[in-house]
């Protein structure tokens, strides 16, 4: 802390400032990148899965409809945290299964029945980045199921005349879907999608369950009581203060998201005749 700054703001404030800008706190601030990445990449995955699910639900082919309905209903029927833990583990084991097929000898496989991984060569080490991507994809799968329903409903709301007109112009079913149906669906899907975005943002707080050193884990570490002067400021259990900051952070994100979606709805609703949209 430079002296001139200490002179201006006083010793107490200066100490506080030094505390919240020390190396560990900088790590905490930097760990927000995981949350932001999971939010954005997870949302993109959710939209992709949602669109695929909705197209399947909309399909004329019975089997596709069945798969779409199973996806949309089963994934939503279990807690998000269960799927959030299940998918990365299952994916890891799937990869390790294929690694075992190519890397392990028959003797090793026979000796390791009931163990996992089947042999040391088949172990797939996952770092923070791999877990982050897997976590985002599993968020995408969970909230994609929500999106599938919203988008499916929105596709039903699109004016039939528009689709018939497109067909009358000689478009093929796929062209109708891509050029008319999906572009017109967004405005109806927006309110539902904004709800899902809020849910997804809140679910990004779960990253620490996958050993990612995210904001929650850092808040826990920083707030833990410290009685050693060498380690930094001596303080009792301050975890509630750090969690309060996160509590407020998420409220702020919700507030900003609400604003952004209200703006988006106003913008995309321009020129729409349908009163229900506005």
């Amino acid at each position: 802390m430079p002296d001139w700054l200490t002179n201006i703001i006083g010793q107490d404030l200066s100490d506080g400032l030094a505390y919240i800008t020390n190396g560990k706190h900088m790590m905490w601030y930097a760990s927000f990148r995981f949350t932001i990445f999971a939010g954005i990449f997870g949302a993109l995955c959710a939209l992709t899965f949602g669109l695929l699910g909705a197209i399947m639900l909309n399909s004329n082919f019975f089997l596709f409809r069945l798969i779409g309905a199973a996806y949309a209903n089963v994934v939503r029927g279990v807690p998000d945290v269960l799927f959030f833990l299940f998918f990365p583990l299952a994916f890891e084991q799937g990869v390790e299964y294929f690694l075992a097929k190519s890397n392990c000898t028959a003797d090793e496989l026979a000796a390791n029945i009931g163990n996992w991984p089947p042999c040391p060569d088949a172990q797939w080490f996952l770092g923070t980045n791999e877990y982050l991507i897997l976590a985002s994809v599993s968020l995408g799968i969970v909230y994609g199921a929500f999106c599938a329903n919203v988008i499916h409903g929105a596709m039903k709301s699109v004016n039939k005349g528009q689709l018939e007109a497109a067909k009358a112009y000689g478009m093929k079913p796929m062209q109708v879907m891509l050029r008319v149906h999906i572009p017109q669906m967004w405005i109806y899907a927006l309110p539902g999608l904004s709800n899902i975005w809020m849910l997804l943002v809140k679910a990004t707080s779960l990253l620490s369950l996958l050993q990612i050193a995210d904001i929650v884990l850092w808040a826990d570490r920083l707030g833990a009581p410290n009685y050693l002067k060498q380690v930094g400021l001596v303080h009792p259990d301050w975890r509630w203060k750090y969690y309060l900051v996160l509590f407020l952070f998420y409220i702020l994100v919700t507030f900003l998201s609400e604003r952004a979606f209200a703006y988006l709805r106003k913008k995309t609703g321009k020129g729409m005749v349908d009163e229900a949209v506005l």
Binding site: V216, G223, R239
Partner: peptide
Amino acid sequence: GSPLFIQLFMFYS
């Protein structure tokens, strides 16, 4: 507007 996960941690602490 905030995750239950954070609320649980916060009230527990």
